[in-house]
Design a protein around this nucleic acid. Structure first.
Lengths: 349, 349
DNA sequence: TTGTACGCGTTATCAC
DNA sequence: GTGATAACGCGTACAA
């Protein structure tokens, strides 16, 4: 007869406070005057539970401050209700928007998410091993970089479903923005403006660790349209995505630009720096200097930036949906959510 | 009689490949011709296992590519062998060094680590809840920010031992560098140099979300020494830790600096930008302009930067050691590892 | 030194 | 609609 057996469990090495017996599903069942199975059904939103019982159980859970033991849960053949997200450097608006979309979707389905930033190759290798915490998640989202490509499949011990966000491969579910189209949209607008054309791109892959096609696609799209219009780009700059490097590239471009001109900056972050610098140089933005960005971050509207809008939050949400679909049993061929960007014309171009 | 029962388990929603039955401890036991308990003992480095048996088991583990199921492991009353690290923005040399030290120590003890970057208040609140992945770790390292302070203890559902790295509180185990001493060391060197004194600090706490005493301590130490020497700082700048903001602060400082002078930059990152800008302005570094940094990153030596060396990797390692000690049963009062910085004199000052 | 048996908290499959 | 009960994989007494 199971009684106060819950009073036993205690995390190893807990600081001092001895009490705080972690309540179990049985404790809840007793307090609610039902069986453990019923509590489980309430927890898992099983449809066939009477409202009265559901209420009693919910109340008991609340009273006892009961939280299901995630390990026991996963262990019982169920799932851990956790999703691992592997992504590059975290502190940018882009990833913040993407993660918000992703997490909102996952949390709505009662999944928790953990972030695994890509810091080094060595760390990455350990990440993709089944013993690691990534291996314990029910599913995996890889943002911007398709890590499955970096290892031969036998070494890659990934057992969970994987979806890619902001990247594409035919082998996996993907949620991504059509960057080639984005480049074309920028190009179509740019060629209608008078004067010279310039562009600043983000140089990735410098350390050859990871690679993404995002900026290549934007550039290809822009080139296609510009060429088709019989125009050419007077000068293209490449910069690391670091605000000092961006500043230097912007200055270098403006130093020997011929005005009037239109600049396509492959990211709003770059466009913003160029706006600052243009102000410092007393250039008339929208006349001498026209600027088209890419991203449409919340602050882009405030600054009057003409830019290519990316539905970033939606991309995260789609990635979440694709993964949840797999977790709910879908096992067909890979699917994709290709999202279309659109141009937002404001004051700068 | 347990046989191929392992052939049953399968992650929900796995992509396609049906096979790959995940081996269990029983499979290993059978292959090695021993009991399951013995395999467990080998896994947990129990001393009383004969070398011969240990070898056979190890071989079987290798052959089967067996990995213990972490959930089952934790569930059986053991530990999950995972440590959660909560930290601010990740992509700086500082955190890279710290994490390296921390992870090396933890991995040596067969613990895996997961990173939880602090992106928003909302995310943080969910992090500290027992159901979240952070709650599943055996222990917790909080870097730079003491998150336990942000919530009243009843709401903070942290059940695991916590250690602070790069921060201090008397309530918890801490590994930190004596930043006040670091500031004093910089000050003592600075006052021996001719000319004016300047300083650039990092302004934290701007959004009042988190707070750290790190830069306050450096400033206080520097002030103490400068004042005691009967000197004063001609001008102090504050900058966000973002390379554009840093660049602006550096330019502003140099724009109306009186030379010769000595500048204490509260982080090497700032000192490096100042070195760049000084070169651009053709200032003679080490004569017109003397620069003292703080951190001593690997690249600081190459640039000849005089700086306060912080043993960052060691700080991470000490944090790991303190946590492992708790996990191994220590339950006494909080302990601290206070590490001493030291001045490294090179060409710039 | 090694094998056996039990229990950890939860979900799922039965009967009812 | 609900309550028993059998797994799930591993650690660990306890017996040998």
């Amino acid at each position: 007869m199971p009684m106060a057996r819950s009073a036993t469990r205690r995390a190893a090495g807990s600081q001092e406070h001895d009490a705080a017996p972690v309540p179990t599903i049985h404790d809840v069942a007793i307090r609610a005057g039902v069986g453990a199975g019923t509590v489980s059904r309430v927890l898992n939103r099983h449809p066939k539970v009477s409202d009265a019982v559901r209420a009693r159980v919910t109340q008991a859970i609340h009273d006892l401050k009961y939280t299901p033991n995630p390990h026991a849960r996963q262990f019982a053949g169920g799932r851990s209700y956790s999703i691992a997200t592997v992504l590059p450097v975290v502190a940018t608006d882009f990833y913040l928007r993407l993660l918000t979309g992703l997490e909102d979707t996952c949390h709505a389905a009662h999944y928790d998410t953990a972030l695994f930033p890509l810091l080094s190759q060595e760390r990455l290798a350990r990440l993709l091993t089944p013993g690691s915490l990534v291996g314990q998640a029910d599913g995996l989202v890889m943002v911007t970089y398709d890590l499955t490509e970096m290892f031969d499949p036998s070494a890659t011990q990934i057992r969970q479903p994987v979806v890619l966000a902001n990247a594409f491969t035919p082998k996996l579910d993907c949620a991504y923005v059509d960057n080639h189209l984005g480049g074309r949209l920028a190009g179509e607008h740019a060629v209608t403006r008078p004067g010279e054309l310039y562009a600043i791109w983000v140089a990735t892959d410098l350390d050859a660790l990871f690679s993404t096609r995002v900026f290549k696609d934007r550039r290809a799209g822009f080139h296609d349209v510009v060429t088709a219009a019989g125009r050419s780009i007077r000068h293209e700059m490449f910069t690391r995505y670091d605000s000092l490097a961006i500043h230097q590239a912007v200055c270098a471009l403006l130093d020997d630009a011929v005005f009037p001109c239109t600049v396509f900056a492959a990211a709003d972050q770059i466009a913003a720096v160029m706006l600052d610098e243009a102000g410092r140089r007393a250039l008339r933005v929208g006349e001498d200097l026209r600027i088209i960005g890419f991203d449409d971050h919340p602050w882009s509207a405030e600054r009057g930036l003409t830019t290519v809008h990316q539905p970033v939050g939606q991309m995260g949400a789609e990635a979440g949906r694709l993964l949840l679909s797999r977790l709910n049993g879908y096992s067909g061929p890979p699917r994709e959510a290709r999202l279309a960007p659109h141009l937002v014309v404001r004051a700068t171009a």
